[in-house]
């Protein structure tokens, strides 16, 4: 425990941290407050967090304005599929790159590492035509395939490899003696031992997919197929005027559940990100 030299220092310490925290906390509060204000009140010059009259119906209106439940589900299932697929693919490849000596593995690793930093903007145009050629335009497949095999998938593979490299080889030796196949060793021994890495990669991949914006923007046109970020950018009236009250209600609906999960599993989530950076 840091001990404060005097009450004055202690007050200053907490006060400066609290002031620094304002731009991190206030946006969430203002969002929640705007979500229950009327369209008129939202523009009255007032800093009151509590509305004059509560407009809970804004939340209901969100679902009438767009197929928001459907869009919510889209985001959720895509993120789950991407996470599950990515975990399988990346742990398999990560294990091989860390544990199996085979010709070309060094070259492959080098190739993957060099792609770690490449943003999707660089390849989005050819991918647009590739998806068109494959007939996957206006489907969720690009949103699943690109994160799994693009730089995010590479990052996941790399993280898994780093983790497997650090596992003591004796455990595998024992399993090999017992006559387990390579896949058996991977599946029954290595994977169970790599829970922390799997959790980290899972969390990061899930959030990456959940927050994806450029791909839905380019590949989706049907409002029923929209994902949450794209749906959120769509709360204007038909002539382009932002509907801030609905916008804030929808944003709250998208953000709050994630925040609750985050607060509940704060330690695990923060550690996952720390792991990704330290190893990356």
């Amino acid at each position: 425990m840091t001990r404060f030299q005097s009450p004055f220092v202690r007050i200053c310490w907490y006060l400066s941290l609290a002031i620094l925290a304002v731009p991190f906390v206030f946006p969430f509060l203002w969002m929640l407050s705007g979500a229950v204000k009327s369209q008129t009140e939202i523009f009255s010059p007032s800093l009151s967090l509590l509305p004059q009259t509560w407009h809970w119906e804004n939340y209901a209106e969100v679902f009438r304005y767009q197929p928001f439940a459907r869009q919510y589900f889209n985001s959720l299932y895509i993120a789950v599929v991407v996470t599950a697929g990515s975990l399988f693919i990346s742990s398999l490849a990560g294990y091989a790159l860390a544990r199996i000596r085979f010709a070309g593995s060094g070259l492959l690793l080098l190739m993957l590492i060099s792609a770690l930093m490449m943003p999707e903007e660089v390849t989005i145009i050819p991918n647009f035509f590739l998806m068109k050629w494959l007939g996957l335009m206006n489907t969720h497949m690009p949103l699943i395939l690109l994160p799994m095999f693009g730089s995010q998938g590479v990052m996941a593979t790399f993280l898994m490899r780093q983790y497997f490299t650090a596992l003591p080889p004796e455990l595998e030796e024992a399993a090999r003696m017992d006559g387990l196949s390579r896949f058996g060793i991977f599946w029954k021994v290595a994977l169970p031992l790599s829970r922390p890495a799997l959790a980290a990669v899972g969390i990061i991949t899930f959030l990456f997919s959940w927050n994806l914006f450029l791909e839905p923007l380019v590949f989706l046109s049907d409002i029923e197929l929209f994902t949450l970020p794209l749906a959120l950018s769509n709360f204007t009236d038909a002539y382009g005027l932002p509907l801030w009250h609905l916008q804030m209600a929808a944003t709250s609906l998208a953000v709050v559940p994630i925040l609750i999960v985050y607060i509940a599993a704060q330690r695990q989530i923060v550690e996952s990100f720390a792991l990704s950076g330290v190893k990356g």
């Binding site: 693919i89 990346s90 398999l92 490849a93 294990y95 091989a96 790159l97 199996i100 000596r101 085979f102 010709a103 070309g104 593995s105 492959l108 190739m111 993957l112 792609a115 490449m118 660089v122 390849t123 145009i125 050819p126 991918n127 035509f129 590739l130 395939l145 690109l146 799994m148 095999f149 693009g150 730089s151 998938g153 590479v154 593979t157 390579r182 896949f183 991977f186």
Partner: peptide
């Protein structure tokens, strides 16, 4: 080992070639 190794890395490698390396050349 070489066979198993390439088998294990094949999903990411193939996907990576199709959705990343290919587009990079195409661009």
């Amino acid at each position: 080992d070489a066979l198993v190794g390439w088998l294990f890395v094949s999903p990411i490698t193939i996907g990576f070639l199709i959705f990343f390396v290919g587009p990079l050349v195409a661009v």
